Structure formats: C-alpha cells, structure tokens
Computed example of a mutant assay.
Amino acid sequence: MIHIEDADTPRLSRRALITGAAASLAVAGCTNTERRLLPAEPAGPVLSPKDPYYLSMYGPMPEEKFPVPAVNLRRVDPIYYRQVVDYATSERPGTLVVDTPNRFLYLVQENGKALRYGVGIGRAGFSWGGRARIAYKRAWPRWTPPADMIQRQPELEKYRNGMEPGLQNPLGARALYIFQGGKDTIYRVHGTLEEWTIGKAVSSGCVRLLNQDVIDLASRVPNNSPIVVIQGGAA
C-alpha cells in the first residue's frame, strides 16, 4: 500500500518469541524464483553490513523483470537481516507468522527453527490480525488503492484502475495476497525499495519486506500457505 513515513518505533529484543493471536498487516510475493547461491552463513552472532554473506544476499538482482538494485545495508538495522533462528512454536512448518510488535516475519521450519525476515508494518489504525491464508502470489503486481484510501488521499485517483508494476509501485517485486474465509482481506505481504522503513510502523496496513527478501519468501511459500498475524500494543 502507499507508504507514509511515521515516527520510528522502539527497537525490541532480537530473540523475542511471539505468543498470542491477533495482528496487524499483510502480504508478499509471486512466482517461484530460483534462489541464488550465497556464501557460507556466518557462524558468529555479530551481523555486519560489510559481511560478504549479507552483501551477496542483498546485492543487485539484474535478472528481474525490473532490475532490483542492491540494498544499502547501512540503512537497515542488522537485527532485521534475513537469518535462520531458533523458534519455539506450535505452528506447523510452512506457516508464516507475522510478529507485529517486534517487526519480524517468521517462516516456520522443522526442528524448532524458522527463517526470519525484518518487516515494516501498518500504522496504528490501519491494522489487521488473525489467521488466514496466502491465496495466491504475484510477481511485479499492479497496485490498486482501495476506495477509502482514495477518499483520504485524492491524489491517488489516477490509480483507481491500477498502477503499472515497477520499482516505484508500492507492492514492489512480489505480493502475497491474504484471504480469510474465502474473502480478500485487502492486506498484502509485499516488497519495498525503502530500506529505512524496515523495523518501523509506516504503511497503510500491509507488511513490507525488502525486495530481495520478498522474492526469497515468495519462492518458498506455495499458495494456500497459512499465515498468522499477531498484533501487539507497540505500534
């Protein structure tokens, strides 16, 4: 959705576990994309924007329909770099869990592990939470603002019938569409070029990831995967 800058939210524990039900936000991603080979994952706990592993992970993606530039990792808190973490949960592997208070999205894996991504979340008053599913994914999707958003922001009228895909499109490189009870929630998990927004509450309801991360996530998540969005008091 349209990105509106908001006050930075406090940074919380990188190991915070999420428990509860109800949440704020939405979708990412599309067609399966072959994941690129990366250097061996660093063994130590120190994350650095100079580490070759992360420079490769967040490097340019010229093979995309709209070539994706490298992320300026100095503008992203290293806690939000993509990484495998210990994760205790009763959710089955393959489930997406959005931890709204701590600004993380977890893809649950086997053996008490999860692949964790940093996210930006919806601003207070534009939040959604609960259990749903990823009905489908799109690569380089069109973006159509909801009617109530156009009413609040008349300058979006020109996009009533949709905005063409591209780097400046608010949905970024991939969008995952969240449905609940057979109905579109209007919330998405999607990509962004605005790396400084990761870890903050800045968007009108949706969950945003770095384009490199949402491309990776979309390649791992099949249609109809379950998603749980956990909403907390820190917004």
Rank of each mutant, 00 (worst) to 15 (best):
A22H: 00
D51M: 06
L37N: 14
G20L: 00
A40L: 11
A70Y: 07
L73A: 00
V68T: 07
A7T: 08
P60L: 01
A70D: 05
N32E: 15
P39G: 03
I79F: 11
Y58P: 10
A16I: 02
I79Q: 14
R35T: 12
G29T: 10
K65Q: 14
E5M: 09
P42W: 05
P10H: 04
D77Q: 06
L55C: 11
Y58N: 03
P42V: 04
L73R: 00
R11H: 11
G29H: 00
L25D: 13
E41G: 03
V68A: 01
A28F: 10
P52T: 05
F66G: 09
P10D: 05
G59E: 00
Y53W: 00
Y80L: 10
F66M: 08
M57W: 02
D6A: 15
C30A: 14
A21W: 14
R74G: 14
T33L: 10
D77G: 07
G44E: 04
K50L: 13
P10Y: 00
A23F: 09
L55Q: 09
E63M: 02
K65S: 08
S48V: 08
T19S: 15
A43E: 13
R36C: 08
P49K: 01
V46H: 06
P78D: 01
A40Y: 08
A22E: 08
L73W: 01
V46M: 02
P39C: 03
S48E: 01
A26S: 12
R75T: 12
A23E: 01
R75P: 09
V71T: 05
L37T: 15
L38F: 04
T19C: 10
A23V: 10
L38A: 01
L17P: 12
Y81V: 00
R75N: 11
K65I: 13
P49A: 08
V27W: 15
P42H: 00
G20F: 02
L73F: 03
P67Y: 04
T19L: 14
G44Y: 06
G20S: 05
L37G: 14
P60S: 01
R15Q: 07
R75K: 14
A22R: 03
K50S: 15
N72F: 00
P39V: 02
E5S: 12
L12I: 04
V71H: 06
S13R: 03
D77M: 02
